[in-house]
Computed example of a mutant assay.
Amino acid sequence: MSLFDLGKALGYLAMPAGLLWVLILGIAYLLLRRRQWLAGILVLGVWALYAVVGNYYVGTALLAGLERTIPPLEDGGEPFDAVLVLGGGSDLDPTGRPILGEAGDRIIAAARLWHAGRARTLVAGGTGRDLVAGSRDLGQETRAIWLSLGVPDGAIEVVREECLNTRDEIAAYRRLRDLRHWRRMALVSSASHLPRALRLAEKAGFAVTPVGADWRGRRHALQVQRLVPTGYGFHLVSTACWEYLGRRLGK
C-alpha cells in the first residue's frame, strides 16, 4: 500500500460515513471488552453490514450485473428514425439554467449519435419534481443542452405530456412513434436502468435498440481506500438495489 493510498484511506475515514463506521466498531469493541457478548456481536454485525452496503466494489459489482445484459452499440448501420432519451440526465445551476446532471451521459450519448449521422431525430421527455424549482420539464432542459452542443432545433422533439416515471415515458414515446410512423428507434438511458426500461417497452409492444450510457459497473484494481464505506458507495448500492427492486415488482 502506497502512502497515497494510505492518505486517501485516512481521508475517507474522516468523512461522515467513515467516521460513523469507526464509531460503530468502537462501540462493538467496548461491548466485547465488557463481556457483553450478545450486544457486542450484534453491533459488530451492524458494522459489517454497514461496510457492505457502503462499499464501492459491492456497488459496482451489483451494477455490473445489470449492465452486462446491455450490448454495446455496433458501429455503422442505418440511422435511427428517432433516438429516445429517458429523462433524468439534466439538472439546474444556481441561476436555473439546464446543466448535465449525474446521469447526464445519456444526453451526451444521444448528441454524439446525431453528430455521427446515426440519428435523424432526438427525442426527450420527462417531468421532475423540485422543492425549489417546482415542476420541471426535463425534456426542455435536455433540448437546451442539445442546442448548446450543436444539435439543430429541427432535429429535436420534446414530449409535451407529463411523464413522472419510466412507464409514463415509454407510453408517451410509443404514442409518438405511432404518430410519426417511426420504424427504427433507439432508447438511451443509464446502462443499469435499461434492462428495466426494455422490459417495460416490451410489455408495451415497443421495439427499440438499447444504447447504454453512464456505465458504472466497470472493474477497478483493488485499492484499500475503496474498502472504506463512503457516501458514493452507498449511492451505488442503492442505485443497483432500486433497479433490482423495480424489476421484481415489474415497474
Rank of each mutant, 00 (worst) to 15 (best):
residue 47 W to R: 02
residue 209 T to C: 02
residue 130 D to N: 15
residue 140 Q to M: 14
residue 34 R to P: 00
residue 74 E to I: 12
residue 158 V to E: 07
residue 190 S to W: 01
residue 241 C to S: 12
residue 137 D to F: 07
residue 185 M to R: 03
residue 12 Y to I: 01
residue 196 R to Q: 11
residue 127 T to D: 07
residue 90 S to I: 03
residue 235 H to D: 09
residue 141 E to C: 11
residue 145 I to N: 12
residue 148 S to F: 10
residue 181 H to N: 08
residue 181 H to S: 13
residue 93 D to N: 14
residue 195 P to C: 05
residue 89 G to K: 03
residue 11 G to L: 10
residue 86 L to G: 00
residue 69 T to H: 05
residue 10 L to D: 04
residue 111 A to T: 12
residue 116 A to L: 13
residue 117 G to Y: 03
residue 211 V to Y: 05
residue 247 R to K: 01
residue 133 A to D: 09
residue 102 E to P: 00
residue 120 R to Y: 07
residue 102 E to T: 13
residue 59 G to M: 07
residue 15 M to F: 05
residue 176 L to S: 01
residue 96 G to Y: 05
residue 54 G to Q: 08
residue 57 Y to H: 15
residue 30 L to W: 14
residue 11 G to I: 03
residue 144 A to N: 09
residue 5 D to S: 09
residue 103 A to N: 12
residue 189 S to A: 13
residue 60 T to Y: 00
residue 229 P to D: 02
residue 242 W to Y: 15
residue 106 R to F: 05
residue 20 L to T: 09
residue 90 S to P: 06
residue 76 G to Y: 04
residue 106 R to C: 02
residue 117 G to R: 08
residue 42 L to Q: 06
residue 218 R to F: 12
residue 106 R to E: 02
residue 145 I to F: 07
residue 124 A to H: 06
residue 233 G to P: 11
residue 150 G to R: 12
residue 191 A to L: 05
residue 179 L to P: 00
residue 58 V to K: 09
residue 1 M to L: 10
residue 115 H to Y: 02
residue 2 S to H: 04
residue 68 R to P: 02
residue 47 W to F: 15
residue 32 L to P: 03
residue 173 Y to T: 10
residue 147 L to F: 05
residue 183 R to E: 12
residue 138 L to F: 06
residue 21 W to N: 10
residue 43 V to W: 04
residue 4 F to L: 12
residue 238 S to V: 01
